[in-house]
């Protein structure tokens, strides 16, 4: 809230200088260094002090399977990241899903989603971003930094897989939720396989389209997107260059990234091996069962139910197994 109020207060100054655009307000991080209130912990599941491990056991994950692997960035800072190994004997124990969370808070807020993916029987490599959670730099990333940090994460994945006793050159699956699609699509499109095996599939849930698309959608009298945006954070343009398999999950009642914007992204994807799953009645926000957060209605997994959701995910990961 402080961030938004500040944004409103700086508006008059920005008016005088003409320096404002929406590209600067894509991320909404919470860093552990500012501390968390009781409400943060109860409602948003932001509880863990800097330096402590996340409470994986609260989400049904054996903490012994979770290992922190900080990503070293170009400027020497580190982004927090966790590798959660598949449960012993899991059917897809050789498959790794790289999970990129949404723009709010930090990885800790999404541990329920990490655990859900993990219950598909896969390894989950969950990334945090600069300025978020327990990353070393408390300052939010610019778009250029974000993409550079994403590239750094991608380049270090083979070594992390090797450290975890996995096949380092095996293709990984990418899962981008909401603004996490910015990281997912960047990895899918812009990053060379390097020493790794590339991308076996891309899964996007309620994904970020572009600032321009949001800007156009915010008014209903056809105001050009370029008035509000420098054209950054543009997944729609980027995904044209993706040719691998692609699953798109999107709720019909998503009031944040409306489904028509998701369709725009889906249609732009340069692959024919793509599938759009429209989930009737699903909203956008990370729905944490049992938490009464105002304005957060059941999301895609909550509406589908865990079994149906995981069936979809496992089917999509068929390209990654074996």
């Amino acid at each position: 809230m402080n961030r938004l109020v500040l944004s409103l207060l700086v508006m008059p100054v920005a008016t005088a200088t003409g320096c404002l655009d929406l590209d600067s307000f894509v991320m909404n991080p919470r860093h552990c260094s500012i501390g968390y209130s009781d409400d943060d912990c109860a409602i948003d599941k932001l509880c863990t002090p800097c330096g402590d491990d996340y409470p994986f056991a609260d989400f049904g994950i054996d903490p012994a399977l979770a290992t922190r692997h900080p990503i070293t960035l170009d400027d020497g800072e580190t982004n927090d990241a966790w590798f959660i190994a598949a449960a012993p004997g899991a059917a897809l124990a050789d498959v790794t899903v790289v999970f990129s969370h949404g723009n709010f808070a930090s990885l800790e807020h999404y541990l329920n989603r990490v655990a859900l993916l993990w219950r598909a029987g896969v390894n989950v490599f969950a990334l945090d971003y600069r300025g978020f959670g327990q990353s070393s730099d408390a300052a939010e990333a610019s778009e250029a930094q974000f993409m550079s940090d994403t590239a750094a994460a991608w380049q270090q994945i083979p070594a992390i897989l090797a450290a975890e006793g996995k096949e380092s050159n095996k293709p990984v699956a990418l899962y981008g939720y909401s603004a996490g699609a910015l990281s997912g699509v960047e990895m899918a499109v812009s990053q060379a396989p390097a020493d790794g095996g590339g991308v076996c599939t891309l899964i996007l849930e309620a994904p970020w389209p572009s600032v321009d698309a949001f800007a156009r959608d915010s008014t209903f009298i056809g105001v050009p997107g370029s008035f509000l945006s420098e054209g950054g954070w543009d997944n729609i343009s980027k995904i044209r260059n993706y040719s691998g398999s692609y699953l798109h999950l999107h709720g019909t009642d998503d009031l944040t990234v409306r489904q028509t914007l998701g369709r725009e992204l889906f249609d732009a994807a340069g692959t024919t091996a793509k599938r759009f799953v429209s989930v009737e009645g699903a909203e956008h926000g990370n729905f944490i069962a049992g938490v009464d957060e105002v304005g957060v209605d059941p999301d895609v997994p909550a509406v589908l139910g865990e079994e149906a959701y995981l069936d979809l995910i496992v089917a999509q990961l068929a390209d990654c197994a074996g």
Binding site: N28, F104, F214, S218, T219, F220, I221, T256, H284
Partner: peptide, 18 residues
């Protein structure tokens, strides 16, 4: 996403022309 969308609300006022 919620706070980002707030900024869009403010920005969308550009188009209100009212």
């Amino acid at each position: 996403m919620r706070y980002t969308i707030s900024l869009f609300a403010v920005a969308a006022c550009l188009g209100s022309a009212c």
